[in-house]
Structures are given as structure tokens and as C-alpha cells.
């Protein structure tokens, strides 16, 4: 029995060092999620597809890590608990600024490389440009949205307009300000504008042509009075200290998936991605500079 006890003590001493000697065998893909069940289904086929092509690098599994906020995802990147992220440009800018994450590739999410924000209102109501919004109310989506909050809010600020958040869509802003309300979903923006509850709405050019976000019978009553410049639709980003060989292989796998018939169902599940491509350093800088846009908007609104 003494031998057993001795062995037990020896094992207990050995176990922690054993754990420390594990080599890296798992790559982790992360995403900010408010619907983790749905996002897991998006990410899982891609994770498996990539893992299958990294075994020679010692990666035999890819795990998914869903984060509740950009702050949480930044923590995970810094701690090395997430290696690779698929996100919007605004999230990419934040993760670059706070966690040092770097852009790998552009993702043609839902089939498009770039998109922009459209400002619209009911036809014939006298709103022809952004300045006409003074003293009026615009409906936006929610504070996390790129195309339906940050981009249009920045555009208003850039045009010298003062923004004020209203508690209700029926409240009125001061005559020199633009009031805004959050309506949570794109269809609510369209409905509020169509009913005349608010004077204008703004969301992405993708949503403008999407029937469930803007039914045709609403669209024919609307007119677009302003568009923002184009921005990248979505991005693949990685933590700054990801091993170069893994980073290189990930780039190759994603680019190869564009023409690989075996990846067809993977890309479709991956938010209906049409392809991945490289973007220039200037384009990357433009994305990273979105962080300044966010700060400017946050400062202008004062929250």
C-alpha cells in the first residue's frame, strides 16, 4: 500500500507539468454573437473544413468561441483564447485598436464585397439632403450596428449636424439637432418611416433590396436622399501573434475555398459567403480608421 501511496503522490506532482507540456492542437474561431445557436451553425462547417487541412501543422481541431460583446472578444484575443475572428469592419477596427488583431482577408458576406448606408424617407416630404433632417427624427437600428448606426451617425456628424437620442419616436428634437431612435430591426425602421412616425431611416444598401427588411410596397413610396461611401462588408481577422505558418495556411485555405467545389456548402453556411480576397494596405487602413469614426460618434452622442 505504501508503494501505491508513493506513486499517487508522485503522480499528483507530475500532473501539472504534464498539462503544461501540451502542444497547440486547437485553433479557435471567434465571433460576437447575440444568437449563438445560429452562429454556431454558420461557423461549424467552416471550422471543420479548415481543421481538415491543418493536421500537418499540428492542428487537429478547430473550436468555436462565441462572445457576448466586442469587449469580451477583445479579451479572448489578448489572452490567446481566440485565434481567428469573422466580423464586421467596425468590430474589426475595434479589435485591432484594443487587441491588436489584424486583417487577413475580406469576406464577401452574403455575396457582396462592399456596401454602404442609404438614407431614405417618404417621397415628396421635402427631405432632399442631410441638412433637411434638422429638427427631424431618423430611425436607426441599434448601437451595435455598423451600417444602421455608426455609418449614418458619422455621416450626420461629418455634415455638421448635432445628434440627440430620443426616448420615443414621437418625441421632437431641438430645431438645430437631428433626433434619432433605435428600432432594433430593419423592418421596424421601414415601418416607422412608412407610417410617418419618423421622418427618415437609414440602413445598408443590402437591406434596401431585401424584401423582408423593406417590402416592395414600402420601397415604392420611399426615396433615397443620401448615400455614404462604400465600406468593406466583412472581414476575416486574426490575433497579431498567431503563428506565421498557421496564419499563412489559413489564408491559403480560405482563398482556395473560392474555387473548391468541396467548399461550396461550407461557404454557403458561412453567412452565404461568395469568396474571400485580399485587400490593399490602404483598404486595411480605412477599416482601422473606422475606430476613429466610432470614437467620434460616441463622443458626439456623449454616451
Amino acid at each position: 500500500m505504501k508503494i501505491t501511496l508513493f506513486c499517487l503522490l508522485a503522480l499528483l506532482m507530475v500532473v501539472p507539468s504534464h498539462a503544461d507540456t501540451h502542444t497547440k492542437d486547437t485553433l479557435v474561431i471567434g465571433k460576437i454573437s447575440h444568437n449563438p445557436k445560429k452562429h454556431y451553425r454558420y461557423l461549424k462547417p467552416m471550422a471543420q473544413y479548415v481543421a481538415d487541412q491543418m493536421t500537418d501543422l499540428g492542428i487537429d481541431k478547430i473550436k468555436i468561441r462565441l462572445a457576448k460583446s466586442k469587449e469580451h472578444l477583445a479579451d479572448l484575443l489578448v489572452q490567446g483564447e481566440v485565434d481567428w475572428v469573422t466580423e464586421t469592419p467596425v468590430a474589426a477596427a475595434y479589435l485591432h485598436d484594443v487587441a491588436g488583431a489584424e486583417i487577413l482577408l475580406r469576406k464577401w458576406k452574403k455575396g457582396v464585397a462592399e456596401y454602404h448606408t442609404v438614407f431614405f424617407g417618404l417621397s415628396g416630404k421635402g427631405i432632399g439632403n442631410l441638412q433637411d433632417l434638422k429638427g427631424k427624427v431618423i430611425a436607426l437600428e441599434d448601437p451595435a450596428s455598423t451600417s444602421a448606426f455608426y455609418a449614418p451617425a458619422n455621416e450626420l456628424v461629418e455634415h455638421g449636424l448635432k445628434l440627440i437620442r430620443l426616448n420615443s419616436a414621437r418625441d421632437k428634437p431641438p430645431a438645430d439637432s437631428v433626433g434619432f431612435v433605435f428600432s432594433r430591426e430593419e423592418i421596424n425602421i421601414a415601418t416607422l418611416v412608412h407610417k410617418g412616425v419618423v421622418d427618415a431611416g437609414a440602413f445598408s444598401s443590402d437591406d434596401w433590396i431585401k424584401e423582408d427588411h423593406l417590402p416592395a410596397k414600402y420601397r415604392e413610396d420611399f426615396e433615397i436622399f443620401h448615400r455614404t461611401p462604400n465600406m468593406v462588408r466583412a472581414l476575416e481577422i486574426v490575433r497579431h501573434d498567431l503563428q506565421p505558418e498557421i496564419r499563412q495556411r489559413l489564408t491559403e485555405i480560405l482563398l482556395d475555398s473560392n474555387d473548391n467545389p468541396a467548399a461550396l456548402h461550407v461557404l454557403r453556411a458561412y453567412q452565404r459567403t461568395r469568396k474571400f480576397d485580399r485587400i490593399s494596405e490602404d483598404q486595411k487602413k480605412a477599416v482601422y480608421n473606422l475606430r476613429n469614426m466610432i470614437k467620434k460618434v460616441d463622443q458626439a452622442i456623449g454616451w
Binding site: 498539462a19 503544461d20 486547437t26 479557435v28 489578448v78 489572452q79 490567446g80 497579431h240 501573434d241
Partner: peptide, 20 residues
Amino acid sequence: GNPPNRQNGHESQTGNHSLL
């Protein structure tokens, strides 16, 4: 199922990133 180096990777990663 995560490799333990992830659990223990906090210090080194944070250290590498302190300047940033």
C-alpha cells in the same frame, strides 16, 4: 477540450501586448 496552454496563456499574451 481546450489545450491547457490556452488556460495558461494569459500572462504571456498579455505581456506581449502591453505596449499596444
